Computed example of a mutant assay.
Amino acid sequence: MARRAGLTANAPRPLLPPDLWPAYRLRWMRRRLLLRALRKRRQLTPVIDRTDAIQPGAILMFLCVRNEAVRLPFFLQHHRALGVDHVIAVDNGSTDGTAQILADAPDVSVWRTDASYRLSRFGLDWITWLMIQHGHGHWCLTLDADELFVYPNWQTRPLPALTDWLDRSGRASMGALMLDMYPEGALEDVPYIAGTDPTQVLTHFDAGNYVIQRQQPMGNLWVQGGPRARKFFAAEPRRAPTLQKVPLVRWNRRYVYVNSTHAALPRHLNDIYDDGECLTGALLHTKFLDGIAERSAEELKRREHFANAALYDDYYRQLIDGATLHTSRSTRYRGWRHLEALGLISRGGWL
């Protein structure tokens, strides 16, 4: 039998053109992560399930929490006022009354697990399963308990107006910059009272020193900077936390978050910017309330919050020893219009 020119009898034939391989690999990554969530569902035990009350078109919020009793009252109040209709929460072994606060709230459904947060992709396996079950077809806001979602006109235009505009604009997701908030002084010197607005004590943020690049193959934005980068990771800035997130998505049971809410699949969910300006918000990050030293000591021992936990030992030790993030270049928070003027968020075509 004659051989075709340029080919040997045993030469493998390419299964896909080279430009289709990235999409193929992302598809299999998404399927693998969905399968992980299916397996990890057995780690969840319902505490109270009120999801039968979820109505079509309801806006849902998903979160995984551990020992957040101090933050939860205002966190829930803030997002209810925005227009969240129902909260679906995973309590990861809290011991401070967090579970009771959630269970007592009539618009919250709670599941509990004592399994490893790190080995469940930092809670994403549990959240993904619950989003498969309850998030399909809904606009879903996925947050940590130390994040307050804000966006242009948030005080007067609630989430139903925002998501309706996103639907009419053909957008399935919205991005937000995580903005580290901190007090004017040492972190432990400004007491916080549960139920009050944490930005009353976490009054400042960094307005500059942010770097941004687009990562492939998912096309997600990688933003680093802020006070943690300059204070704790100045010598190795590539290790600084990622600040860009995609917290608001019209969910489909085939979607997954890949790394916290920094990136999602399918890839188009990461298209939160285009050639012009797109609507973006901010996550006011309230991590640095008083008590951070005690929490850091616990996390240093547990090693549940980073994949390479040993690399962050110095970060935790500085927080334990006492740290001050405020400098003469810090900027006082004055609301969303100020953030827009600084170029940290954008209203895009949202009026």
Results as ranks from 00 to 15, higher is better:
Met1Trp: 13
Ala2Thr: 04
Arg3Ile: 06
Thr8Val: 07
Ala9Val: 12
Ala9Phe: 14
Pro12Ile: 14
Pro17Glu: 13
Asp19Tyr: 02
Leu20Ala: 15
Pro22Thr: 07
Ala23Arg: 04
Arg25Asp: 03
Arg25His: 03
Leu26Thr: 03
Arg30Asp: 02
Arg31Cys: 03
Leu33His: 01
Arg39Pro: 03
Arg42Leu: 12
Gln43Thr: 09
Ala53Trp: 03
Gln55Glu: 15
Ala58Cys: 12
Leu63Val: 06
Leu63Pro: 00
Leu63Ala: 14
Cys64Pro: 03
Asn67Cys: 10
Glu68Phe: 05
Ala69Glu: 10
Val70Ser: 11
Leu76His: 03
Asp85Val: 08
His86Phe: 10
His86Cys: 03
Ala89Phe: 14
Val90Ser: 06
Asp91Ala: 08
Asp91Gln: 09
Ser94Leu: 07
Ser94Tyr: 11
Gly97Lys: 08
Gly97Ser: 12
Gln100Phe: 06
Gln100Asp: 09
Pro106Tyr: 09
Ser109Thr: 13
Arg112Lys: 11
Asp114Trp: 08
Gly123Pro: 07
Met131Tyr: 03
Gly137Lys: 14
Cys140Leu: 13
Leu141Met: 11
Leu141Cys: 12
Leu143Trp: 09
Ala145Arg: 04
Leu148Gln: 07
Trp154Thr: 09
Gln155Asp: 07
Thr156Trp: 04
Leu159Met: 13
Ala161Pro: 00
Asp164Phe: 11
Asp167Trp: 05
Ala172Pro: 00
Ala176Arg: 01
Leu177Pro: 05
Met178Lys: 05
Leu179Asp: 12
Leu179Lys: 10
Asp180Trp: 06
Asp180Phe: 05
Met181Lys: 11
Leu187Tyr: 08
Glu188Cys: 09
Val190Asn: 14
Tyr192Ser: 06
Gln200Lys: 11
Leu202Cys: 05
Phe205Glu: 02
Phe205Lys: 00
Ala207Glu: 02
Gly208Ile: 08
Gly208Ser: 14
Tyr210Leu: 05
Val211Ala: 13
Gln213Thr: 10
Arg214Thr: 15
Arg214Cys: 07
Gln215Ile: 01
Gln215Lys: 03
Met218Glu: 05
Gly219Leu: 04
Asn220Thr: 04
Asn220Lys: 04
Trp222Gly: 00
Pro227Trp: 08
Arg230Tyr: 15
Lys231Asp: 08
Phe232His: 15
Phe232Trp: 10
Ala234Asn: 09
Glu236Phe: 01
Arg238Cys: 02
Arg238Asn: 10
Arg239His: 02
Leu243Met: 10
Pro247Gly: 06
Pro247Asn: 08
Trp251Asn: 00
Arg253Tyr: 00
Tyr257Pro: 00
Ser260Leu: 11
His262Cys: 03
His268Asp: 05
Asp274Pro: 04
Asp275Phe: 13
Gly276Asn: 06
Cys278Met: 13
Thr280Gln: 08
Gly281Ile: 12
Gly281Lys: 15
Leu289Asp: 00
Gly291Thr: 10
Ile292Tyr: 02
Arg295His: 09
Ser296Asn: 01
Glu298Lys: 13
Glu298Tyr: 12
Glu304His: 13
Glu304Asn: 10
Phe306Met: 07
Ala307Val: 07
Leu311Ser: 13
Tyr312Glu: 14
Gln318Lys: 13
Gln318Met: 07
Leu319Cys: 10
Asp321Ile: 08
Ala323Gln: 13
Thr324Ser: 15
Thr324Pro: 02
Leu325Trp: 12
Leu325Asp: 08
Thr327Gly: 10
Thr331Gly: 07
Arg337Gly: 10
Ser346Gln: 09
Gly348Asp: 01
Gly349Ser: 07
Gly349Pro: 00
